[in-house]
Design a protein around this nucleic acid. Structure first.
Lengths: 340, 340
DNA sequence: GCGCTTAAGTAAAAGGATTTATCCATGGCC
DNA sequence: GGCCATGGATAAATCCTTTTACTTAAGCGC
């Protein structure tokens, strides 16, 4: 038994294919009575237009690709999860479907990241969490393909992006700590994204331009994970015992740092203050609650969808958006104590 | 500039459309020399066949839908993340793409769960974590659509599924605790899936058929979360102070229970033993390490892909698979102590 | 009653592949 | 030399919609 097609509906209603198609696409040119007749037949047959024939003819798939990095447990990560939620929500609001892609070795080397667009399989692609190593993205700069970087960017490249204001993040965090009297602040830096490098640079210069010397803002590199923050914190504390505050590149690192402090019997915030970035759900549940700079990842995801579609429709050529951030003061920061 | 099509390649090589198509599909009927010639042209033009034309003609989209429940932070959950990883890995191995769907109100009420299949947008659909409330799935029982339930099932329904052996899980956990001398065991039950109900039932009957009375295996309902386990544990401990062991419906509940025990100054495992289910990554990092029953969620995900495709290709009508489980003994269980 | 606008439909041309049945040389065999 | 099997390639049908340009009929003002 062959599937019901638009032809069957047309025949049954005694109208042309075009009429059925127009009805299905809510074209006002069809009279209410005809419309009604067609819709009833559609209902009777439980007819669903073939998505491919549709995409083929209309030149739009109504599908978006979201590309996540090839990390362990990337599908169980609050950072990516929040962005993906924002993307999914907005996309389905607009009648779009979301296709999953992982930027693994194969994805890059086979040029899959181009193929999904060239084969018209998706209307646009959203790249979450690409790193400084993802030079393959450079190649598409000139092709004007509808792709956008989500909460990340490539400095000096003409690639669309939507990202939180990392410069402001650094400034706000630095000012908060400086305002509490801290004069030696350790920085736990993520390492492989431009936003991470940016954040570190801006944080350090915010401190130094407020009177601290460079050596008063020591930093250490690590992965953007609890473990990374834990290790980096140990490393810094071994070398700079008089630090009174630690700033993490994201909440996970800050949380890892708190575990390190606990082991070292340092009290937060009495002995040492801790600040994170993102305001992940976990930040509210640490003990003490983590002071952090809130990034609205859900919003970033949903705006990325709008931007990607604008590019796809040719309504824009290049979109570069920076979103406001917000300091969230909880209990992990307090006045600087004398240490050493 | 129009996109390059198969026609352009054919013209340039002086061969027919069919020839190009056959080359692209690795059909052995084409001579090596022609094949080479075509492939070079393809390469020169960076030609990518239009995915829709392809799907339309070949009647296969090479896309799978994975349907996750509409839970908070479902995209940042280790349980779902692990299954999705398994699905994604196996799917891309087979040249399949993965489409994301969330079983929210709209997805159900608009019949979207049927439309994705009827519109041929996807070859098959995988449902993760559907609950007892998802009665909409009953409707498709007879339609023989290529869909499979992942680590879940609908008792008495003819719907394909792949799931861990929950009966064995219950038995193994019960025997482990009974073997350690426990004679009053609390059970923290998830509430809204058939596997959860199954697990509880089997656990209780494993205990009673080994000499415990029903009142020695008290249980409480809760969400499948840390908070759910935490609350259920408090509830049980208030009422059954002589329990020497707690069994959680999954690792999260067990971990929540451990937080509760800590608050109550009960030592694990000296005062009370705790067992979980799943062997989530976190289980190895609790303190003490959590004894649990390992479910290979990654494997379940990847097998679900194979099953779904078998259904799609008509190689099978109904697939019902139960996967072996494994007890992982860590530090959270020990000999029963006298309490009460 | 005439020309013109508008509303309601329709015919037919894309859209870009896959696939089946068919065709045409060859080469081998007797 | 004639016949047949076979390997290599092709023509044409098919997949199912969208969309543009065109047709027809009705309605309107004068």
């Amino acid at each position: 038994m062959a599937r019901t097609t638009i032809k069957d509906i047309a025949r049954e209603c005694g109208v042309s294919l075009s009429t059925v198609s127009l009805v299905l696409n809510n074209n006002p040119r069809i009279s209410p009575s005809t419309r009604e007749k067609v819709l009833q037949a559609v209902d009777r047959h439980q007819y669903q237009p073939n998505a491919f024939a549709r995409s083929l003819a209309s030149r739009s798939s109504h599908v978006l690709s979201v590309v996540v990095p090839d990390l362990n447990h990337v599908f169980a990560d609050t950072y990516f999860g929040e962005i993906v939620s924002g993307i999914y929500d907005r996309a389905s609001e607009l009648g779009y479907k979301v296709l999953l892609d992982v930027a693994n070795q194969r994805f890059v080397s086979t040029g899959e990241y181009l193929n999904i667009l060239k084969s018209k399989r998706v209307d646009a692609a959203l790249f979450i969490g690409s790193s400084v190593h993802d030079t393959y993205l450079h190649q598409v700069e000139e092709e004007k393909l509808p792709m956008v970087l989500v909460n990340h960017y490539l400095p000096g490249r003409k690639m669309s992006y939507i990202a939180a204001d990392y410069a402001a993040t650094a400034r706000v965090a630095a000012e908060h700590l400086l305002g509490l009297g801290h004069r030696c602040i350790g920085y736990l830096s993520g390492t492989n994204t431009y936003t991470a490098l940016d954040l570190r640079e801006h944080f350090i210069s915010a401190c130094t331009s407020n009177g601290l010397r460079a050596e008063d803002v020591p930093w250490a590199d690590g992965w953007f994970t609890e473990q990374g923050g834990y290790e980096a914190a140990h490393w810094l504390l071994d070398r700079h015992p008089k630090m009174t505050a630690l700033m993490g590149g994201n909440d996970k690192m800050a949380i890892g740092a708190m575990r390190c402090l606990k082991e070292r019997k340092l009290r937060v915030p009495e002995d040492i203050s801790v600040v994170g970035v993102d305001d992940a759900p976990a930040a509210a549940f640490t003990n003490p609650g983590l002071t952090t700079v809130r990034h609205d990842l859900f919003l970033i995801g949903s705006m990325a969808v709008d931007s990607a579609l604008a590019l796809f429709k040719g309504e824009a050529q290049l979109i570069e958006k920076t979103l406001p951030i917000q300091l969230v003061v909880r209990e992990s920061t307090g006045p600087a104590a004398a240490r050493g």
